[in-house]
């Protein structure tokens, strides 16, 4: 059995699963937004629209074609980067989304990095000091952090750092190409607000995973070889404990994107969330459809990356059916 062959096999299977999930997800979105409203053109224009206006929009949206052709045209278009035209703004949906993703994606990444940099060391420290005062204090903090809604924490941060201390802006966003420093400052508070609950969850998961691993036989073996308990945990425990943490990390990035949509509201950031809310209130179904599928792609892609990372870290997954 060649490891290379199995690895390729694994990749092919994972990619196929990824594509299949996306296809079904696109189908669900299409069913909900294109077929369920009956006539999307009438839904978009409202009940007071003239039949002529509805007919014109129908032709423009290509609604005269049968449903399966419309679905395939939509999916086919997306594959070459064409997400259709926004019905209200008359602009390509892909362009609108790309512009907003320049805010949403960096914000999620910043929050992710902060939560990993803060959360994992706290979790490791707590596990190493299990049962001692440090552990208890850190876990009380984490327990509180998990319970704080990120958008409310954003409001509190604004109150302290923007209004009282005036260190950072209360909100708004200056595009990256105008002033990268100002853009970064605008992202600091929302990034922290998003990172706090995630860091707390990571700290808790990391601690539990490491405590579990510490009870495994191979830690005892490492100690029998001549390591102290903490050496054994560092050299053998942490790497093994990172496996379950990886899964949570993947789920978290998906949730961070969703959380960003909420936190953008607090800081008046022109991200994907604001685009979607405007689209909903203006009944711009083409735009909603495009934005949701992008969110679904990001979520599913994250899961795929986690799966692949898992296979890379854990030799047991290579060459085995999963």
């Amino acid at each position: 059995m060649g490891g290379g062959f199995h690895m390729t096999l694994f990749l092919v299977r994972r990619m196929a699963g990824f594509a299949a999930t996306l296809f079904v997800a696109a189908l669900v979105i299409f069913l909900l937004l294109d077929l369920l409203p009956g006539d999307p053109a009438r839904f978009i224009l409202g009940i007071n629209a003239t039949p002529e206006a509805v007919a014109a929009l129908r032709t423009q949206m290509g609604l005269d074609a049968p449903a399966h052709e419309r679905f395939l045209a939509w999916v086919g278009g997306m594959l070459v980067g064409d997400f259709g035209l926004s019905t209200t703004q008359r602009l390509p949906v892909a362009e609108l989304i790309a512009e907003r993703m320049a805010v949403t994606l960096p914000l999620s990444l910043i929050a992710m990095v902060v939560s990993v940099v803060v959360g994992l060391p706290i979790g490791i420290l707590a596990a190493m000091r299990r049962g001692k005062a440090t552990d208890t204090a850190l876990m009380v903090l984490a327990q509180t952090g998990v319970a704080i809604p990120n958008f409310w924490f954003g409001m509190l941060l604004t109150l302290v750092f923007a209004v009282t201390l005036r260190w950072l802006p209360t909100g708004g966003f200056i595009p990256w190409d105008e002033d990268a420093g100002a853009a970064m400052r605008g992202m600091t508070l929302p990034g922290l607000a998003l990172a706090l609950p995630q860091a707390s969850i990571l700290a808790r998961v990391m601690r539990t995973a490491l405590v579990d691993v510490t009870e495994q036989d191979f830690i005892r073996t490492a100690r029998a070889k001549g390591m102290t308990k903490s050496e054994a945990i560092w050299r053998h425990g942490v790497r093994n404990a990172l496996l379950p943490v990886l899964t949570i990390l993947g789920l978290q990035f998906a949730f961070l994107i969703a959380g960003t949509i909420i936190v953008e509201n607090v800081f008046y950031l022109p991200g994907l969330g604001r685009l979607i809310f405007t689209a909903i209130s203006e009944r711009d179904l083409v735009l909603v459809r495009g934005a949701t599928i992008v969110l679904v792609v990001v979520t599913t892609a994250t899961m795929l990356v986690v799966d692949l990372a898992y296979a890379f870290v854990d030799p047991r997954l290579k060459g085995r059916d999963a």
């Binding site: 495994q216 036989d217 191979f218 005892r220 073996t221 490492a222 100690r223 029998a224 070889k225 001549g226 390591m227 102290t228 050496e231 053998h236 790497r239 093994n240 870290v313 854990d314 030799p315 047991r316």
Partner: peptide
């Protein structure tokens, strides 16, 4: 104690699957 274990005592455990680090 770790130094004593490392240099003067060798140990073999019951279940070799779990007693070995799966990632090394």
């Amino acid at each position: 104690m770790a130094r004593l274990r490392g240099k003067r005592i060798g140990m073999v455990f019951q279940e070799p699957m779990t007693a070995l680090n799966p990632l090394m």
